[in-house]
Nucleic acid binder design. Structure first.
Lengths: 141, 141
DNA sequence: TATAAAGTGTAGCCTACACTACACTTTGAC
DNA sequence: GTCAAAGTGTAGTGTAGGCTACACTTTATA
């Protein structure tokens, strides 16, 4: 067991995983901001921070990163908004999240575990895997 | 769509995901070192670095972190070895990886995507989910 | 056995992501 | 309209994870 894949293959896989990690947080922020905008009408740094369990300073810094990435706009004391690109990302993330949770549930994972684990898993699910998930759920119906 | 879970619940989930992230790398290292020790008889920083696609300096720093965590031992120019704790971790990680890949394959995910995605997914699969995966595969037999 | 190649280790730098502490702006209550 | 509370922003710090550059040790080969 533990057979080693070819060196290059393994390195490529790890590299992909690392880069997925760096976008995971931005994806979570985009989704949360979209939810807050729809649910509360506004997305404020403090609310975002509370939801994510981090300090407001941390949230503000990440919001700055969202701006740099062209995903959000924000003016001092005036809340956070998503750009078109940000909205598109949030929607993609939502669909993916739903799909991952549904697959976990279909596999018999308890609801709370499915929701919690999906939070981490979803960021590492590729397009191909997503397609397979959708197909699997379709057949199950 | 995008319904908000209770504030505390959401914060707890994100916190869990964040802490999983910090152990993910150590898990990967432990598994790789175990594989190298079995396959090559030794685990050298340069080999580890090549497999993971990082510089040898980065690998050495992470090996230092493994030592601090009580997972590995290493003496200058003498290779890396796992402690009992490190071996236990490596074994747990291997079993989990196998299970995740097998479930993805059973769901119809193409082999290469299953292997690559599992690399990221595995670190976020809880005990409960793991149990459900095992059960699901058992039934499929 | 010298010496070049391969491997190892250290130092210094960068970014991301977390924190606390402090200062400032807005809002709301009296 | 004042002023306290709530929210926001900035600065400074720490760890993790990445890099390159340079110095050192070990190994292997001519």
């Amino acid at each position: 067991m533990g057979k080693l894949p070819a060196e290059g293959t393994q390195a490529r896989r790890f590299g992909k995983t690392r880069s997925a990690q760096s976008t995971a947080l931005l994806e979570d922020y985009a989704e949360l901001i979209a939810d807050l905008l729809e649910g509360e009408g506004e997305a404020r740094p403090t609310d975002i921070a509370r939801r994510l369990g981090v300090s407001h300073a941390t949230a503000i810094k990440t919001i700055a990163r969202l701006k740099r990435a062209g995903l959000a706009t924000a003016r001092p004391y005036r809340g956070v908004f998503l750009t078109e690109k940000g909205h598109a990302l949030a929607n993609r993330v939502r669909v993916r999240h739903r799909l991952v949770v549904d697959v976990l549930l279909a596999l018999g994972v308890p609801t709370e575990a499915a929701e919690a684990d999906a939070e981490g898993i979803e960021h590492y699910v590729s397009e191909n895997t997503l397609k397979a998930f959708a197909q699997f759920l379709k057949i199950r119906e």
